[in-house]
């Protein structure tokens, strides 16, 4: 089969299907990763000793354990404990657990960078601690965390390729299957590489725009 026919007839439709799965993985992971990450950061910053130790322990484990191993634990390991997850679900859960650990580091750094006086002032105005965190601290901290969080989002796009290792046929899987069947390795992997580069470049541009959109003039969000 000549490369042109391969690219247009075989690879392009396969990659399109894979792209949908990759986007689904990323879109399902990101919000929960952000939520869990915020919870971990707040737990570490404001929680009691037990809670903050637990949150730190979580971060040590999930940052230290390779994502591939985590996916294996969820997909191949859990069935031995009687819990069988579909591959796609296992991948999303793995990504959320890992993404949250990294996100929480950025959010915690941002929360810690908001001056203590703001919390004191909010409480002096009669706000509870929770209200102050929700309405005063987080809106500022999240803006400061955006550069780190968007970096992490781009990492997520890239490591979503590991889902293929637990049989989810996303972009990488689609390319690998086509490459092996038709023996077109360079063509397949370069093509899928271009798709990833396009995804990453577009996302970089989009998060740059988002950063500008949510910036508050004078608050020094831009570094």
């Amino acid at each position: 089969m000549d490369p042109i026919t391969f690219l247009t007839q075989i690879l392009a439709p396969a990659l399109w299907k894979g792209l949908i799965v990759t986007v689904a993985l990323v879109v399902l992971t990101a919000p929960f990763g952000l939520l869990l990450g915020t919870g971990l950061a707040l737990g570490r910053q404001y929680g009691g000793r037990a809670l903050s130790t637990a949150c730190s322990g979580y971060i040590v484990f999930f940052k230290g354990c390779p994502l591939l191993l985590l996916l294996f634990i969820l997909y191949f390991g859990l069935p031995s404990l009687g819990l069988t997850l579909p591959a796609f679900t296992a991948a999303v859960i793995g990504f959320i657990l890992c993404n949250a650990a990294y996100n929480s580091e950025y959010i915690q750094g941002a929360v810690a960078s908001i001056k203590d006086g703001q919390m004191t002032a909010a409480q002096a105005l009669g706000m509870t601690r929770a209200q102050a965190i929700k309405s005063i601290i987080l809106p500022q901290a999240m803006r400061r965390a955006i550069p780190g969080l968007s970096n992490e989002f781009i990492y997520l796009i890239k490591y979503s390729s590991l889902a293929y290792m637990i049989t989810v046929v996303e972009l990488t899987g689609a390319a690998k299957i086509a490459a092996t069947r038709y023996f077109m390795f360079n063509e397949s992997f370069f093509a899928v590489g271009i798709v990833y580069l396009a995804l990453v470049t577009l996302t970089t541009y989009a998060v740059g725009r988002l950063e500008q959109r949510v910036a508050i003039p004078g608050m020094g969000v831009k570094t």
């Binding site: 890239k158 490591y159 293929y164 490459a179 370069f190 990833y196």
Partner: peptide, 23 residues
């Protein structure tokens, strides 16, 4: 830098292991 930072490790490994090095 754009190329190597933009691609997943897995894709790079496949590309070099099955593609570039044998070619």
């Amino acid at each position: 830098v754009w190329f190597f930072r933009g691609l997943p490790t897995l894709i790079l490994l496949f590309l070099f292991y099955f593609g570039v090095f044998p070619a």
